[in-house]
Write a protein that binds this DNA or RNA. Sequence first.
RNA 1: GGCGCUGUACCCAAGUGGCUUAAGGGGAAGCUCUGCAAAAGCUUUAUUCGUCGGUUCGAAUCCGACCGGCGCCUCCA
Length: 469
Amino acid sequence: MLIYNTLTRRKEEFKPLNPPNVTMYMCGPTVYDYFHIGNSRSFIMSDIVRRYLEYKGYKVKFVMNLTDIEDRIIKKSNEQQTTAEAISQFYIDAFFEDIEKLKVRKADFYPKATSHVEEMIELISDLERKGIAYNVDGDVFYNVKKFDGYGKLSGKKIDELEAGARVEVNEQKNSPLDFSLWKKAKPGEPSWDSPWGKGRPGWHIECSAMSTKHLGKTVDIHAGGNDLIFPHHENEIAQSEGVNENQFVKYWMHFGFLNIQNEKMSKSLGNFFTARDVLARHSAEAVRLFFSQTHYGGPLNFSDELLTSAQKGVDKIINLAERFEESIAKADENGIQPEFALKNFYNEFETVMDDDFNTPQAVAVIFDFVRAANKVIDENPNLTKSFLLELKNFLAKTAEDVLGVIHFADLRRDLHSSLDIDAINKMLEEREAAKKEKNYKLADEIRNKLNDLGLIIQDSKTGPTFKRK
RNA sequence: GGCGCUGUACCCAAGUGGCUUAAGGGGAAGCUCUGCAAAAGCUUUAUUCGUCGGUUCGAAUCCGACCGGCGCCUCCA
């Protein structure tokens, strides 16, 4: 399978270090606020990458960091007159709630920055010993010129960056490009003891330290949003490879932005919706299908209309899933087992996903399957149970397990929770009777009543069925 | 200024040299089924891929120029 590697700007054959094991590190949230729907794109797409690797038989160890010490957290804690810890814990809880609602699978481990200060100090000390880091009165900086490969990920050259001159001027730094490894404590800030005095770690150092500690010196995949390429990931490479001679990351993956009216959605521009706001209006499945319908690397515009269209697509898949559930319940092994190119659908799905996770084409394969499956059910009233189960399994393995755009367990729950099935069946029988007497007025009245209960009635050759609106 | 992404139907979007005289979803229109609906199926909806040139037997796909949109270079998924 091929993965586009930001480092080489090419699609490369994916060869993990120790197959079938795969190590994957994803840059997680800074927990100073609820995350927005743009952030969700990275979380969901990395989730899909991880799920597909598992589909392929890899054993993935997936680690996502939680940045729980950072300027914005400190600022908020001062504003609210509480501790940084209280702020970060509040938003960590919120993060897990939202991630669960988005049906993003939990990482194997969520290391917190504040639990790894010791490891970060060690790493900074190593850099200092090697003459790469320098201490200026309690602030420690990374000397960018001491690392030959600086700029290799983002394609930047040190000279040009300096010419750019948008870098903040800090008299203490040797060069404006040098970045903070350790920040000297200011009054009222949380701090830790270190060889350089009280202070707190810089932002970039945490990922180097935690990735190495939990996944080893070389990680197979390191992922994050496009905006992390520079400086964050560039600096991670400088830190980790400055200390360890071996390669820090084999495959760098970066996710495109979610835009609003062609502008990047971001907190600073104020043009964002939180994930929880969006999930109040749309299903997680619609959000996931919406993201899956475009390639992970490019930009994508967000709007409620687009999510509504995605929901229509989800409904189409759900409809088929419900047909499966109903027909499987009724079916046995006395029936027809027609020709069906199931193997081709699997092959197609894998071929396109193997090509750098081409989820839009994978979605297309699923919709092709939906049409073909509907057709075979239409044309054959008595299919065998095993045949139907095989078809259902395709949806379960692709649409559910990999893309997460449908969930069979939710279907059953939706149908059977908080509904008086007996009463509904009784109303349906009355309606059938009315229909037989051609008392359509009464039949429609009953249907309207069921509509008011939130049910959609569908007549079919085998009798009426119902589903939730 | 440097680096990178991007322009395909009414909307979203895949495809990066012949398998595609362009997938899939939404929308729209017609038909089948239906008491009517709904669902599903079938059919139709880009001779054309920002513009202009070039390379090639052959280009949406390669090259050049131009026009337009966006991002990073500062915290940001």
